[in-house]
Nucleic acid binder design. Structure first.
Lengths: 226, 226
DNA sequence: TAAATCTTGTTTACGTTGTACGTAACGTGG
DNA sequence: CCACGTTACGTACAACGTAAACAAGATTTA
């Protein structure tokens, strides 16, 4: 009957969640700047404007993508209370963040980049703050610890992504014609370039994380210090 | 005579550097996504395609912007050699980075975000590596220190920028209609929201920086340990 | 000197983007 | 039966990046 039912995709009822998931898939496959309303539509086998029945505009769609990606940050979350080994939980949170960052690297870039993504990270910040509070930090110190913790998380992720995009790779989503002043006047960088890319990023990350956690552990704390 | 000489801008001979500077001005004034080839052209009082005589395409222009912004990172740079107070130099580098980030916040966001920007940071990485080498770290440790240092720099900057964009402000370059799940289930965050925005970001930054530097100082080092 | 080439800017035009608008198929309650 | 809201579709438009052809001065070459 239907003379133009989709030929290349299953015909699910086109809900908002489906649009978001398809968007994530496209971002991971073709890069963030290749995410187009028309592309989503054809991928789903529907008209372009049909998407706007479920999503008000593209920015909101990106926000929904960010939220969906961060929704995968469900670290088991123990019960609250004084915790004598708060570093273990901090490591778990960092690991969870790292896991989703590895599963959806490009979408995670979008999350870290856009202000909507930072907003969606509110719940994660909440959990981290609870953790620091349980560790015995007072309010001001907990905020400082949270800032340092998140700074390292975000920066390390973006740094690793940038380092990976530097190592040859067929440049897919970013410009490739920027080899003009390279390798000329940065002897130490090229000398240590192999060192930079030899070390697996996970080890680098863990190294800095341990350093940060130890530093945090030396901060003044309140009652629940075991 | 010229019946259509520009009325709103001086008529300099339209060099590449002028285009870059105008782009930076537009980015800082109207946001990064408002930077348009046509806008640059009208701002300079020339036709759109005239720009393409000095810049191959928009991506390269953005790369040039990134490079130009990072060119302001000229920390006085002492002579190389064993340095007994390397932390002082590290603080100087952090301060220089912070200064340009405060002078061109939106352009700096572009730098941190785009891979071209990370590339342009090569010279800065070079200097930091030299610093860590002079401090007595071996190659592997210096790379680890550099990663941690840059991670904190980048993350702290993006975090501060995100925090600033959260505090009410008339949303200029980012979406504003994302108030849906806020303030409901994040009690600790809203409880400490004022704490989060009361502390001036500089103090927060210095706090984490000192922590990081002290942690780095405890890493194993070679001969030049004073 | 005159011709050829390069530089610098303009004009026109094309393809792609996000999305506003009008319309048709669809169930569901009167 | 109809009116109705919800959902999907096709058309249309303004703004975008930029390729191509062209014009006019500056510079080089014969």
């Amino acid at each position: 009957m239907g003379k133009k039912t989709a030929d290349h995709a299953e015909r699910r009822p086109l809900t908002r969640e489906l649009i978001v998931q398809t968007s994530i898939a496209i971002i991971e496959r073709d890069g963030a700047k290749a995410l187009t309303m028309r592309k989503i539509a054809t991928e789903l086998g529907v008209g372009v404007m049909s998407l706007y029945n479920h999503v008000p505009n593209k920015d909101e769609l990106l926000a929904a993508v960010a939220e969906s990606v961060l929704a995968g940050l469900d670290v088991p979350e123990r019960e609250a209370g004084p915790d004598q080994d708060w570093k273990l939980h901090a490591r778990a949170m960092a690991g969870a963040f790292r896991a989703v960052a590895h599963r959806y690297p490009r979408s995670m870039h979008l999350v870290l980049t856009s202000p909507a993504g930072r907003m969606a990270g509110g719940r994660t910040a909440e959990r981290a703050l609870a953790l620091f509070a349980a560790a015995g930090f007072d309010a001001a110190t907990a905020v400082n610890a949270l800032c340092a913790f998140m700074s390292y998380m975000i920066g390390a992720q973006m740094l690793e992504e940038g380092a990976l995009s530097m190592t040859g790779r067929p440049p897919e989503d970013h410009l490739d014609a920027d080899a003009e002043i390279d390798l000329d006047e940065i002897p130490r960088v090229v000398e240590l370039a192999d060192e930079l890319m030899r070390v697996d990023p996970d080890a680098d990350f863990e190294y800095g994380l341990e350093m940060l956690l130890c530093a945090l552990d030396r901060l003044p704390r309140g009652a629940s210090k075991v």
